[in-house]
Design a protein around this nucleic acid. Structure first.
Lengths: 189, 189
DNA sequence: CATCTTTTTTTACAAAACTCAAAAGAATAA
DNA sequence: TTATTCTTTTGAGTTTTGTAAAAAAAGATG
């Protein structure tokens, strides 16, 4: 059982019994190196990941453009939800943008416990709901804020990432070119 | 019980019993006029809506800019999920962009049946999951496609809307100005 | 029906962001 | 360490999109 995961689970209102069951259903801790993929385009996603440390990007990689849709870091959960829930192959990839430590749980293992324990099913759906809310908020920010304001908000919330991952990933997440981000950074100070 | 809702529910794998229970939990059909609000900024969202006909926009209205995050139309479900699930006041509004017929179900009514019937709880969570997937897909499209391609894809999928709601709403949904959309429309033909 | 309002389109102009290319700086590997 | 690769910055020029204002078209109202 991993400490970080347990702390994370304790923030939900789960019984201690459920916490133990969930914790025991995850695979052993994995270390992933920078630029390793947890998932590549056209594969099927069979796992849900818990990021203990480091940073995993949910990214769409096309010939001419890569776009990061989200990051998983610091005790958060990430997967390619579309593929994970619909059993289709993924358009998105999961890429470690810094050295990371993660846990993973397979769809089967997860379904086993959500089917057996209603409380755990509820917990899982609350994760989907939180993920939806996060993406909606991001969408609001992308459409209403200027590039400069998007960057400012980003450093307010995730300032630590600025120093631990290449800026090109942040610019991609903020939907601008690395050049534009570089210019914003020099213009601010 | 409304025919459209029943047809919609039959597409999920719900038992007939659950379908009847869900149908009976909704309020009477409401007609909303173009430009009526189902929900305004800073209110709390207490309802989930089923759009029978017409078109409801999920919109963020700011001083200088309005942005549409999604449409509900033709037998689909819509609400301001952030407010609905977190009990916070909404930043988003729900605006009828054409004359619409809708049903609504209150949070209380919904929770009553999801708590009593696990199958209905599952159904509700599948709606959240589908909503998440829809928003993720939209996000991919907004970040990877050019304005022209976004418009082309939109008319492929929702061509009927082009003729039934003002173009300014479509341009907002596609994250471009009405002028840009107008230029695209003349350049295509 | 005539009028008023809203929506759509068009224009000219301005500004923002992107592309391309190159150099400087960091990080990584041999 | 040095070499190599990757990242960030900078500059110039181009393209795209946005702004503003006005005209045209469509729709609503009395």
């Amino acid at each position: 059982m991993t400490n970080e995961l347990e702390i994370f689970l304790k923030k939900s209102n789960l019984s201690q019994e459920s916490i133990v069951i969930i914790c025991n259903s995850w695979n052993k801790e994995i270390s992933v190196k920078k630029k390793d993929y947890l998932l590549r385009k056209n594969q099927k996603e069979n796992y849900l990941y818990f990021v203990i440390s480091g940073c995993i990007a949910l990214i769409i990689e096309n010939e001419n453009k890569n776009s990061i849709l989200g990051f998983g870091y610091d005790n958060s959960i990430i997967t390619s939800f579309i593929s994970f829930s619909t059993e289709t192959t993924t358009e998105l990839s999961l890429l470690a943008v810094s050295e990371s430590k993660i846990l993973k749980i397979s769809k089967n293992q997860l379904y086993k416990i959500t089917n057996s324990y209603p409380e755990i099913a509820k917990w899982y759906y609350s994760i989907i709901e939180k993920t939806l809310i996060g993406h909606l908020k991001r969408q609001v920010e992308l459409t209403t804020l200027s590039p400069k304001d998007r960057y400012k908000l980003f450093i307010e919330r995730s300032g630590n990432l600025v120093n631990s991952i290449p800026l090109k990933y942040i610019s991609s997440y903020l939907n601008m070119t690395p050049e534009t981000l570089s210019r914003i950074r020099t213009s601010i100070y």
